[in-house]
């Protein structure tokens, strides 16, 4: 598939990003660079200095709401991406409302409780919608422990074990690897549906 063909398909697609921290900001940027049509961003936080060790923000954005700072950054990279930003702390009700029309949802929260909440909500309310979660990425090294596992429409990227602690802080490289895996998986899912259609047409 040529990049032109890839962009033609992705232009029609919409991805929801739940959380715009280390996973969400980097994943959104990768999807924007690849030519996704629309991103639906949701986050309740502002940019802090401690975020800059791994999140796609800049020193002149400190104090800004993350969704709007990320919207600006994506515009500088690829102004043709449509962006819908929600400065909100997501709950089951708002997840259903905000991400209803998305083709894929990226779970990009920090807290384990929030991860559970969105995964359960999506499995329950949108059983046919793919959700790609990041699970276990703190610390450094051991790149080969990071992998992807699929359980029907639920995709899990990470080492499945390393949570945040004093000795295992979240750092740019491993968080970035998982964010890129999530973006990569989203693109694979979005393109696969169209490739299947294409094969069907070719056979007819």
């Amino acid at each position: 598939m040529t990049f032109k063909e890839i962009k033609t398909i992705l232009k029609k697609k919409r991805v929801g990003i739940a959380g715009c921290g280390g996973l969400g900001s980097n994943c959104a940027v990768a999807l924007a660079r690849t030519g996704i049509g629309k991103l639906v961003l949701a986050d309740f936080d502002v940019v802090r200095r401690s975020n800059l060790n791994r999140q796609h923000y800049f020193t002149d954005q400190l104090g800004q709401k993350k969704v709007f700072a990320l919207e600006d950054n994506i515009y500088f990279i690829n102004p043709s991406v449509k962006i819908e930003s929600h400065h909100i702390k997501l709950d089951p009700e708002s997840i259903v409302k905000i991400f209803k029309k998305c083709d894929v949802i990226i779970e990009a929260f920090d807290e384990a409780e929030m991860k559970q909440m969105i995964i359960e909500t999506v499995l329950d309310k949108f059983p046919d919608k793919p959700i790609i979660s990041g699970m276990g990425m703190a610390g450094f090294g051991d790149s080969n422990s990071i992998r992807m596992e699929q359980y029907a429409n639920l995709y899990i990227c990470g080492d499945m074990k390393t949570g945040i602690s004093e000795e295992t802080p979240p750092l740019a490289p491993r968080v970035g690897i998982v964010a890129m895996m999530q973006a990569n998986q989203a693109i694979q899912i979005l393109l696969a549906s169209e490739i299947d259609l294409g094969f069907k047409k070719a056979r007819e």
Binding site: G22, K115, Q116, I156, V175
Partner: peptide, 8 residues
């Protein structure tokens, strides 16, 4: 059975 792990 999936464990929820903090970090993101």
């Amino acid at each position: 059975v999936l464990h929820m792990i903090s970090g993101g």
